[in-house]
Design a binder for these strands. Structure first.
Length: 534
DNA sequence: GGACCGTTGGGTGA
DNA sequence: TCACCCAACGGTCC
């Protein structure tokens, strides 16, 4: 009998056994299968210029989550008679005839996969790269829309319709996998620990409460959907962003990000629940609606050149944001002086996750609501710290929240004081993430600077010493933001109204001049104190 | 050119 | 808890 080909299954996202068409195809009828994960220097290269050790792009929490996911994947592969090969070198001696990996839409992978496919084609290697990370193939949606991605959720829904696989079973269960072949001189390792990747051990205090991996994802999924009424009545905007002991959402986002959980499997599970109840909520607010948001942003991100930046981004308003690193640092390091904002930023740093509406609060505050700092700066901080960071979704939401695209009602600003109070009048969330304020009476906990000195003394928290004074006055800052946005929108109208390139460049110059003349934002006079969240 | 809509605003008054 | 106003955006549809 002629030997079958050797296959290489290249894991990137899609860190799972269930609903994994690339793995199925790789395993099908081959002699040897090499399941490989490459520690990608693009993500792992340490950079002393950044504010923390480890990779330039990913914080400790997400890397830990990734490594836990790899350990779990390795364990699952071992149960099937295989194992995960964590690779640092070139697998040159393996005589691979078939290369399988999940299709990726992010620009980085698009460029990488283009090269890989070219190389494979020259080397006579079959490539199988199925779309299985998202519900739909973004390219199909864009084609249906005449070559451009839909820019509203509703038009996306119409174009997308019901996925073709919605009612058919997903790929079969793997019972076993072919053995691993001769490994040769290739440098192979076990799944590393975070210290081996250049991260410092910061102690349990800073570590996320969420564990990575497919097993945990499936456990969490079962747990989330066992309450059928909860699934059927899910309405995202009604969720409580301050709930932290029992979050108001599923917290399946990090598992979807790494593909520990298949979005298609999740879709089918929700669908099964909905079939068996009398009535249920609908997109955009329903649980299924949340999954569709993910696909919406993947589609727009895939079909929009320069999606991750303002300049050269067709769908992004050109806005003369401030370049104020002090304000950015205050926001990033949870010392804006607004407890609601700072508590959310501490949760981000410690947990790598916070409720969607909490993200709205801090993103609005940093950009169009108060500080008028560029959304790309906030995007970078989220990219580093979120365990569920997802390129398309993160950029999409920052475009949304900064009123740069998708959403334009810039008068609707989240109050850094009353928005949180509405959900959590006693300030339990603030007390938990900002223990320095734990004894502040609830009357003052959202605005501690208004507390009489006697109260501050009694609460063992003097504003300006133990906790910062507010970096801006919300009333005047938000007013100023609205004015600047109205002005920028006016300029953008003109920008879009001109046909010739010359005119366009002229207006761009005008915008840039405006940018440089823009006065620094008015701030309450105070020295930013050095303060770090405990 | 006008009506209507848009995942999740704030504030007031009943 | 809900209705209503505030002020008012762009996209879409007619």
């Amino acid at each position: 009998m002629a030997p079958g080909p050797n296959s290489l299954m290249w894991f990137r996202k899609g860190l799972r056994i269930h609903d994994n068409p690339a793995l199925e195809h790789a395993a099908n009828g081959c002699d040897c299968l090499y399941p490989v994960f490459v520690i990608d220097p693009h993500y792992m290269k340490p950079d002393p210029a950044t504010f923390s050790p480890g990779s330039t792009r990913a914080g400790l929490n997400r890397i830990r989550f990734l490594l836990e996911s790899l350990v779990d994947l390795d364990a699952s592969l071992k149960k099937l008679g295989s194992r995960l090969l964590v690779l640092k070198g070139e697998p040159s001696e393996w005589d691979i005839k078939r290369l399988c990996f999940e299709y990726e839409t992010e620009p980085y992978y698009q460029a990488l996969d283009y090269k890989v496919k070219n190389y494979a084609s020259l080397a006579g290697i079959e490539v199988f790269s199925p779309v299985s990370h998202t519900l739909f193939n973004p390219a199909d949606i864009i084609q249906k829309n005449g070559g451009r991605p839909p820019l509203s959720y509703q038009s996306f829904l119409k174009l997308a319709g019901k996925p073709s696989w919605a009612s058919s079973p997903l790929v079969t269960k793997l019972n076993s996998l072919p053995p691993i072949g001769h490994v040769g001189n290739c440098e192979i390792s076990e799944v590393p620990i975070v210290q081996e990747l250049g991260y410092e051990d910061t102690g349990e205090d800073e570590l996320t409460v969420f564990r990575g991996g497919e097993s945990e994802a499936l456990r969490r999924l079962r747990d989330s959907i066992k309450d059928k009424e909860w699934v059927a009545n899910f309405e995202k905007p009604k969720g409580d962003p301050s709930a932290f002991l029992k979050p108001a959402t599923t917290v399946l986002s990090p598992y979807l990000k790494f593909g520990c959980l298949s979005s298609r499997y999740f879709y089918q599970c929700i669908q099964d629940v909905q079939k068996n109840v009398e009535r249920h909520t609908s997109p955009p607010v329903s649980l299924l609606g949340q999954l569709l948001w993910r696909d919406f942003f993947y589609t727009v991100g895939f079909g929009t050149p320069n999606f991750e930046q303002m300049r050269g981004n067709r769908i992004c308003k050109q806005i003369p944001w401030n370049d104020d690193d002090e304000l950015l640092a205050a926001w990033r390091d949870a010392r804006t002086g607004f407890p609601w904002i700072d508590a959310i930023m501490v949760q981000l740093r410690k947990w790598g996750w916070m409720h969607h509406l909490a993200r709205h609060s801090v993103a609005c505050f940093l950009t169009r609501g108060d500080l008028f700092v560029h959304w790309e700066k906030g995007r970078d901080v989220f990219e580093r710290l979120l365990i569920d960071h997802d390129w398309a979704i993160n950029n999409g939401n920052w475009l949304w929240l900064s009123c740069s695209s998708f959403f334009y009602q810039y008068n609707r600003i989240y109050s850094p004081i009353s928005f949180g109070k509405k959900y959590d009048p006693d300030g339990e969330y603030i007390r938990h993430f900002l223990p320095v304020l734990k004894d502040m009476p609830k009357e003052y906990i959202y605005e501690p600077w208004t507390a009489p000195l006697s109260i501050q003394t009694k609460a063992k928290c003097i504003v300006g010493k133990d906790y910062p004074k507010p970096v801006i006055s919300h009333d005047s800052a938000s007013k100023e933001c609205k004015r600047k946005l109205a002005e920028a929108y006016e300029l953008n109208k003109k920008l879009n109204g001109v046909a010739s390139n010359e005119d366009l460049q002229g207006l761009r110059r005008k915008l840039e001049e405006k940018e440089s003349q823009e006065p620094r934002p008015k701030r309450l006079k105070q020295k930013l104190i050095s303060w770090s969240p405990k």
